[in-house]
Amino acid sequence: MKITINGKKTALKSPQTLAAIVRQTCKEPQYVVAEVNGKIVKSNGWAKTVIRENDAIELVSFVGGG
C-alpha cells in the first residue's frame, strides 16, 4: 500500500501503526510531532493509529531558527 511521509511517496508491505512508522523513520521520536491527513495525532495515540492506503503523514521536529 502506498502512503506519503513528509511529501515523499512510500510503499508499505503491510498496514502499520503510526508508532511503528515514527520509530522506523525518526532517530529521536521523543521530539517528533505527527500529523495524519492534516490532523495532529498526540503521541499517546500513535500506537492505536493504524495507517491506511493513501494516508499522508507529516513528521516534524525542532531545528535551529531565528
Partner: peptide, 18 residues
C-alpha cells in the same frame, strides 16, 4: 531563545536543537 519547526529529515537524522 527562538527555534523553528521543520519536517524530520529522514535521511540525515539531524540532532535535535532542543
Amino acid at each position: 531563545v527562538t527555534v523553528a519547526l521543520r519536517r524530520v529529515d529522514v535521511e540525515r537524522h539531524e540532532e535535535n536543537i532542543l
